[in-house]
Design a binder for these strands. Structure first.
Ligand SMILES: [Mn+2]
Ligand SMILES: [Mn+2]
Ligand SMILES: [Mn+2]
Ligand SMILES: [Mn+2]
Lengths: 146, 146
DNA sequence: AACACTTCTTAGCCTAGACTAACTTTCGGA
DNA sequence: TCCGAAAGTTAGTCTAGGCTAAGAAGTGTT
């Protein structure tokens, strides 16, 4: 059993602080990932479709996209969809790589595809680079080439 | 490569909706888990210590604990610490079991203990029961009895 | 018993992220 | 061409979760 003893207050605080940082980035990651997916698969990424796929109102998308624009990740051409800046494209690629790795890993470890997709949607934002490396190593040791 | 094709809008929306639900529960889980740990290890759980260990101001703890009280998880005796209700105790036990499982699993998969603790702090809130079952199975197949 | 220190609360502020309702703008088909 | 449906924006509201600054309330030590 781990956690026999409490970590120091400083260590524990640092963990929670970093975790809250990851939480704050999660929305941006999910949005740019979705926008990139839509651009690739559908040719365009409309705010309406984001709303539908995020399970959120259009007004929420407008507000969120506003923040993404403010943060230099997204550009909009009203009535002709959303686009990613260079930074947005890079973040989307990173998010997608992470997402796919986590999904493959969860499946390799015994999860069904549906649950893997569900859980990955949250877990992806909290897996450090070290964790991703470990996941990748695990997959390659299994000869997983999915 | 997974995600060759997009999920249906409904499926994808359901995932994000459930993920947001998990996010909303995360703070409560972390607080009651910490309170339980402090009660067990230190004999009492003071708001100051929570603030220190959560990496947050005391005012934030007051506000958050207020919500936990409203939600029937915590009771307070001013100047003598925080206590868990039956519901709070149950949630804490669940959270701790999940936390420890995730940590052990991440270590088994190749992570160092420090990173495992860090990542578990976020991942624990997004691992479904199915995932936890898979993690446990993985550990037992490895003969892991940590 | 008094006072300093610690603990806790209050007040006031902020941002993200969500909602509904109402409105405006554009697009496409008749 | 024009007009209804679709797309998008705006306004107003809410909660969670943060913060600082200031003050109140216990606690313990002398
Ligand atoms: Mn996600
Ligand atoms: Mn994702
Ligand atoms: Mn946690
Ligand atoms: Mn935890």
């Amino acid at each position: 059993m781990p956690r026999r003893t409490l970590p120091t207050a400083e260590d524990q605080a640092a963990r929670f602080v970093r975790q809250r940082e990851a939480d704050r980035k999660a929305t941006a990651e999910d949005y740019v990932e979705l926008i990139a997916d839509l651009l690739r698969e559908e040719g365009e990424a409309r705010a309406v479709d984001l709303a539908r796929r995020m399970g959120v109102s259009q007004a929420t998308v407008t507000a969120t996209v506003g923040r993404l624009q403010r943060d230099g990740l997204v550009e909009t051409k009203p009535y002709r969809g959303l686009f990613l800046t260079a930074a947005g494209t890079a973040l989307a690629a990173e998010a997608k790589a992470r997402h796919d790795l986590v999904v493959r890993f969860l499946i390799a470890v015994g999860l069904d595809a549906g649950t893997a997709e569900q859980d990955a949607e949250g877990i992806e934002h909290h897996a450090s680079d070290k964790a991703l490396t470990a996941f990748a190593r695990f997959l390659s040791e299994r000869g997983d080439t999915t």
